[in-house]
Amino acid sequence: MKTLVLIGMLLAAAGLHAQTHTEKITKEFTFEKKSADNALMIANINGSIKVEGYTGDKILVEVTKTIYAKTQARLEKGKEKIQLGVIDRADSIILYAEGECNKFGRKTNRGGKNQRGWGYSWENNDRSCNEEYDYRLDFFVKVPASINIDVSTINNGDVSVQQVSGVVIANNINGSIKLQNLVREAVASTINGDVDIDYSTNPKKDCRFYSLNGDINAQFRKGLGANLSFESFNGNFFTNIDKLETMPVQIEKSNNGEGIRYKINGNRYQAGAGGALLDFETFNGNVYLKEKVN
């Protein structure tokens, strides 16, 4: 009896997505206005993001779009509704997932006024919007190495950025983040996954690295000069830096409208002669900070 039940469950799972469609989307962009502030933003929802810097001056985009559905009719609807969205701002390019139950644009506050930054608004907050299919967009993008990068995804994918000499911001929810050959300041944050950081030139400006359920592995060049901050609930801090001095406790005062709050951080250190702040925070994970020998 148990065997029959198991077989039934397997057959039911196999039939969840009876139809699949996969296609490649390729795009090519150049900045109309070239400057040191040129930036690429990728705001994904389901799928991975991989960005590589190179010596060319064009943004070369390849997106693998995959739709899963139980019927052909639902598959056709997904093929129509899920598209690669593009916003060209002359000095910046924004790529996003254009879907049935979400809209992408300028963030707004409750008063309807535009705020700085871009993001999604979800049309299914009242549960009235129902996507009858599943989908993912997997990005592979080659960019001019000197531009700034801001990339994010939510489900079913990791984020990877390498060989980019500009500022890098990377966010994820259910996946890892890997940033390689960094030169300038960076911010990386994920909920469920590791954060791997590798610097080819030590940063001169503040950086922040965060994982709720994962480790942070950060590698810097020998002779790192920085101020370090570490905070964790269930994690520890490990490093191979010889010259590390404890810094005084820092007390941060804030007012969020519900009264004044104080945050105390006693895990502060100075590496070498000090310098930019490298802020590491986890909840269920360790931080491994290493100076590379070579």
Rank of each mutant, 00 (worst) to 15 (best):
Thr201Gln: 15
Gly166Glu: 00
Tyr262Cys: 07
Ile241Ala: 10
Asn255Trp: 03
Asp206Gln: 08
Asp206Pro: 07
Phe230Val: 01
Gly223Trp: 09
Ile177Thr: 09
Thr201His: 12
Glu252Ser: 15
Gly157Met: 03
Ser189Met: 11
Gly259Lys: 07
Glu231Pro: 00
Ile177Tyr: 06
Asp215Thr: 06
Ser229Ile: 11
Glu281Val: 05
Gln180Thr: 10
Lys204Cys: 03
Gln162Pro: 07
Gly274Pro: 09
Arg221Ser: 13
Phe230Asp: 00
Tyr262Ser: 08
Asp198Leu: 08
Asn192Val: 06
Asn267Tyr: 05
Gly157Tyr: 00
Gly259Asp: 02
Ala273Arg: 13
Ser160Cys: 11
Leu277Ala: 06
Gln163Ala: 14
Thr246Trp: 10
Lys243Asp: 13
Asn192Arg: 05
Val187Met: 13
Leu224Gln: 04
Ser176Leu: 07
Leu182Ile: 09
Val249Trp: 00
Gln162His: 14
Val167Gln: 11
Ser165Pro: 04
Ile216Tyr: 01
Asp158Gln: 08
Tyr262Phe: 15
Gly275Ile: 02
Glu281Cys: 05
Ala188Glu: 01
Asn256Trp: 09
Ile264Trp: 11
Gly266His: 10
Gly175Glu: 03
Leu244Asp: 03
Gly157Arg: 00
Arg184Gln: 14
Gly175His: 02
Leu228Cys: 01
Tyr262Glu: 13
Glu231Val: 06
Gly175Ala: 08
Ile241His: 10
Leu212Ala: 14
Lys222Val: 00
Asn155Ser: 15
Asp194Asn: 15
Ala186Ile: 08
Leu277Trp: 13
Glu245Cys: 03
Arg268Ile: 02
Gly274Asn: 09
Gln219Tyr: 15
Gly225Trp: 02
Gly225Ser: 15
Ala276His: 09
Ile216Ser: 00
Ser160Ala: 13
Phe283Gly: 00
Met247Arg: 15
Asn171Tyr: 13
Asn172Tyr: 04
Ser189Gln: 14
Asp215Glu: 13
Asp194Pro: 06
Asn256Ile: 03
Ala271Trp: 06
Ser232Thr: 11
Gln250Val: 13
Ile264Gly: 05
Gly166Ala: 02
Val195Ser: 01
Phe209Trp: 05
Ser254Asp: 12
Asn202Gly: 08
Asp242Leu: 12
Tyr199Ala: 03
